[in-house]
Design a protein around this nucleic acid. Structure first.
Lengths: 247, 247
DNA sequence: TAAGCGGGTTGACGTGGATCAAACGCCGGG
DNA sequence: CCCGGCGTTTGATCCACGTCAACCCGCTTA
């Protein structure tokens, strides 16, 4: 997938959008807003963008002017260092926000890439700031979203800093499961949108280690795994595994 | 140091404070505010608190109502899991903010502990939201601070996910160095406020590994180390070490 | 139908850092 | 001045995960 293709397509795939009749409004920024406030938000969320699998929503170094709400699909964000190493910093699904990293320096500091065909709402940031000066609820909710991102990052730091391979994978799967559940999908059966390599990058492991951990989970009857199709058979077992004292 | 001692002392050590004549105002929340705006901020920043080494500024589970700006001293924040493992999520120095994690759930999700005698300004969060609805500059600056925290966390994730022990320690020291420099202290010579164990926890390493890495750096002439006293002798060498391709 | 390819699995082996253990230096108290 | 305690250093050993390599599976293309 060439960059030019992606950029060209993006330029045209914009659609007028409206929060007030979006079925994600309980999951996304509009939480708790009154009808008239929701109308104001509609004006704010100016455009929708469609992306194909592999397209970049934004790249490191690109000017920041909007944050994005995932309307459908699945994303990853990653950061790079010169020598080629990279780290997946998160996976984002419907109702989650992308681009908060760009606020600090007016420039995006990570890449956001669609892992399947996706759709996002672009929210021009200066407008969001303007509106959140008027709507207290929106302001507070936005602050909570940013704070939640910080808390999530602390969880990942804990995972990377103290957990062993199987614990990391268990934590990862339980987190995904719970997020699918919150969106009305089965918490027990889902398919992964990311490769073993991407999971490994997120968890600070090599893809072989991820693959082996999957196999061991399957052997122990905790899951069934077929390629990217996951069925969780023993949630309690996975949870127990996570809190196993390090020997 | 017992908890009760700390809590009792904290209750009394409150002092009226003012941003407008604080010599940190170029480093802290007031950046870029006009004189009259600064006066409003003064009313906001209600109290100052002194802490002794080892005191908790706040604890996991405690109700969130203020964020804190470090006026002097040095802090660490950490998170725990049931089985006793813990992860230091950050070290905070003068001008940096503490407590952003609490916004999302109205409850603190990490502990903040003074690593030396310290002083903080308490900023009641609801007041901050109120004022930032009036002062655009303040609002934007606050968003930048939160975003910067997210970017910093991504850096730590990169460190924990992809770097080896010596690279982590080099990155850590260079970061400290640069932060001391920004505060007008020597970037080359400083003393660490935290133990090897705390460094290890932050970097996802055991204290022995940290100690060995220090020794090796010293052998290679990159630093001189005497207990917690650090002198950086070869910044370029440390930087090069950081970007060494993994074999 | 074959051939190519990208992603996933599995095995054999190497190694960086954890673990265990001992000793050292610094510091405060008797 | 000695003593005990804590943080740190250093050495010896171990093991979880990385590395390297072969192979497999499902999909696409010729």
């Amino acid at each position: 997938m060439s960059t030019k293709d992606a950029t060209a397509r993006l330029a045209f795939e914009v659609v007028k959008t409206a929060c007030s009749n979006c079925n994600l409004r309980e999951l996304c920024l509009p939480i708790g807003l009154e009808a008239d406030e929701l109308r104001k938000l509609d004006e704010l969320v100016s455009t929708r963008r469609r992306l194909k699998r592999g397209d970049y929503l934004y790249r490191v170094g690109q000017d920041f002017e909007s944050i994005y709400a995932v309307r459908s699909g699945f994303f990853k964000t990653d950061v790079l260092i010169e020598d080629g190493r990279d780290q997946v910093t998160g996976f984002q699904m419907t109702g989650e926000l992308l681009g908060l990293d760009g606020i600090s320096s007016e420039v995006h500091t990570c890449n956001a890439i669609a892992l399947e065909d996706s759709e996002v709402c672009a929210i021009p940031f200066s407008h969001l700031e303007g509106l959140s000066r008027q709507i207290h609820t929106l302001q507070h909710h936005f602050h909570q979203v940013m704070s939640r991102e910080i808390v999530r990052d602390h969880g990942v730091m804990m995972l990377l800093g103290t957990m062993r391979a199987e614990e990391r994978l268990a934590a990862f799967l339980l987190n995904l499961s719970q997020r699918f559940k919150a969106r009305g999908y089965s918490p027990a059966e889902f398919n992964l949108r990311m490769s073993r390599d991407e999971i490994g990058s997120y968890l600070g492991l090599k893809l072989e280690t991820v693959s082996r951990a999957f196999s061991r989970f399957q052997d122990e009857g905790l899951l069934s795994v077929h390629q990217r199709r996951i069925r969780i058979l023993n949630t309690a077992g996975l949870k127990k595994l996570m809190s196993h004292q390090r020997l």
